[in-house]
Design a protein around this nucleic acid. Structure first.
Lengths: 239, 239
DNA sequence: GCTAACTGTGTATGCCATGAACAGTGTATG
DNA sequence: CATACACTGTTCATGGCATACACAGTTAGC
């Protein structure tokens, strides 16, 4: 594992797998990567993603922002570690059939995103490369092993369900963020603009129920997952 | 439409619907909202979302960043207008059945996101409130009118398909961003860590095909949409 | 013509990520 | 055991950002 090769890896990947160059001389580091990541998570939990800055994290540890750069080469790298730690390890593999397994998987992932509502804002992109995130993928693949689908289809399902969780988490957070008087002001404002201007159906929806209001029930959340699972089931039955 | 009420609206909503207070005295504004929004879109197209700053937009117009605040009260407001303009108006309503309509809708939306790859990064949250975005929703509702589903289910479908488009757009962009030598470095690095450490299935997938490589075919993109449509179809047949 | 409203500019503040120089510290090597 | 060097955290510094404020120039309405 050359240094050359490590430099080509996505930021944070090497660190996430424990590739931290062992120092031999000099003072002991006062902190651990884990402490720093925990402080970052605590900071985001307390003040949100926008307040997740290097100074704010450092302050929680009682050091200066620059000291963090003795442990990390960039904020981006830190965020990769934060994402891995905050999503956390996957739950125990489910025992039922593929449908039960995927349902449990999606609910568990959604649960994590509710615990840290800033998690879906982290600009951590691309395929998973860190232990926990790959663990979630392993868990999914295991849960779908009895489906009889090929590797490519199962990966397609993983991408699909993962995307659903992130969209849903984002939706849930946004909806909960709206105070009722703002929702009312919005529909009061939009109503006149929609009527008779080519927005007939939207207007009906908005006037019918409170549009975007807190009326997201558990059933609404599960609706999309149910469709996806049915669609996968149709594929399985067809083959 | 009191000012009081307008202040309660989400940022940019009033502006997007043309509520711009008509000035009576003083010099003519040198620019229009449309010009500013176009400049922002050009800037993001040219240098990406990270370079979409008030100074960079203003420079394109030949003015100072502060001058923008004569037209907009915040960057957030601008981004709402940018999102509405960059997604653009919905396509003509499709003529086939609901499945053809939703397919066309999803592909059209995906096409827009490919045209402006930074679009899915815009922190424009919550339910749509601007003319074009609501137009897309109207278009979707119209396309599903013949499905026989109730309003709540149709809205659930809209949310589901919209989420799929955004996830897919994000995936496509990320995947295309990876140079091949980095992909190779990554699988070379991950391989040894996954074998025999509880990541058997992930390891198989990675070693099998190039994991995360450019190998996303059109069929892979359509896979998720196909499952979703099948799932919706099952729901329709069941009722 | 005068005044007030409105424009764009210059200046300023307080954030941010990050680089560089520096002083203190403790270990490996002489 | 002494010393040099690697490594720590701090201070200082840079350039970028969103945005507030005061100002000078412009023009429509009185």
């Amino acid at each position: 594992m050359d240094d050359v090769e490590i430099e080509l890896l996505p930021p944070g990947t090497a660190l996430a797998w424990g590739y931290t160059p062992a120092p031999r001389r000099g003072p002991k580091p006062g902190y651990s990567l884990e402490q720093i990541v925990d402080a970052a998570i605590a900071q985001a939990d307390a003040e949100g993603y926008a307040a997740l800055s290097m100074p704010s994290i450092a302050k929680r540890l009682g050091i200066t922002a620059n000291a963090l750069y003795r442990y990390l080469s960039s904020k981006e790298e830190l965020l990769v570690l934060v994402a891995d730690a905050a999503w956390g390890p996957p739950p125990e593999p489910s025992s039922g059939d593929w449908r039960a397994a995927v349902t449990a998987w999606a609910r568990a992932l959604l649960e994590r995103s509710r615990r840290h509502s800033w998690l879906i804002d982290l600009p951590v992109r691309g395929a998973p490369t860190t232990p926990n995130l790959l663990g979630w993928l392993e868990n999914f693949l295991e849960g779908m092993a009895d489906s009889g689908l090929g590797a490519q289809d199962v990966m397609g399902c993983a991408v699909l369900v993962d995307g659903w969780v992130r969209s849903t988490a984002s939706l849930l957070r946004d909806v909960n963020a709206n105070p009722p008087e703002q929702v009312q002001a919005l529909s009061g404002f939009l109503g006149p603009h929609l009527q008779g201007r080519g927005y007939a159906r939207v207007a009906a929806v908005i006037s019918g129920e409170a549009y975007g209001e807190e009326g997201i029930e558990e059933a609404d959340v599960e609706f999309g997952l149910g469709r996806i699972l049915d669609g996968i089931e149709m594929l399985i039955d067809r083959r």
